[in-house]
Design a protein around this nucleic acid. Structure first.
Lengths: 120, 120
DNA sequence: GCACATAGTGTCGAAAAGGATACCGTCATG
DNA sequence: CATGACGGTATCCTTTTCGACACTATGTGC
């Protein structure tokens, strides 16, 4: 269930800002979208890219993104199961937003020391 | 206390995206920032602009924004008390991000029917 | 027969976020 | 004397979020 920040967006006038946040808020949604910008991925491919996210949480986040019309879920009736996730046009339209977030973050977010070291 | 989305931003590679979200996540932060883009405001001026936010929550959000270096709090030693809030340069640098969120929201967020009616 | 991969679901519990309400001191006004 | 504006705190409680862990079904390979 998505977190309902405000039942109605009556907090004027930043309301559509909050409205957008509602879509990408969720602990792993930003990262999931980020990876899907690169192309269609299967469930476990996403999982391997986000090792800190539990299976249950990933399923949750994917379901919410799907319910919000940002990603598409395609099931192949095979065994073992095969499910592919991809962005919808609406989801892809979020790219400038994610990019803006990333640009600011690259300039302003200080990584934890040990992470910065790994990156260095 | 700010919501710690990840203790360390090791969720690569969308990490700085999440890092930015961490700053503007908080039920009323987006709206508060939005109002402060227009200029310096006193506590109760902000309060009146966001009637659905309780006093306690507003104080919380302002404290977090201040701790994150996004807004400045200036206290005038007067009585009755006077406290002014304004954006720091770092806070102002978030404007393109908030704008990106708002642009997407304006295009993609459907307002609740009764709110849309009022706006019409 | 056993483990493994796939893509999940169910249940439990801890922690965090957020809302309601009451309270604080000081000064000005009526 | 009571009320209101100002900028908060303190306390309590509920809701939401999230992580841990176990469990499911089916088919393949050893």
């Amino acid at each position: 269930m998505p977190r309902i920040r405000h039942e109605r967006f009556d907090c004027s006038p930043g309301c559509t800002v909050e409205g957008t946040l509602r879509y990408i808020d969720g602990k792993w949604k930003g990262v999931v979208l980020y990876h899907l910008f690169e192309g269609t991925l299967r469930f476990n491919e996403i999982r391997r890219r986000i090792p800190n996210c539990t299976q249950r949480m990933l399923t949750n986040q994917l379901r919410e993104l799907e319910a919000d019309g940002l990603i598409a879920r395609k099931i192949y009736p095979e065994v073992p199961p095969k499910v592919e996730y991809s962005l919808t046009p609406r989801g892809r339209s979020l790219e400038p937003v994610i990019t803006a977030l990333k640009v600011w973050g690259d300039a302003n977010v200080t990584l934890a020391p040990e992470v910065a070291q790994v990156a260095a």
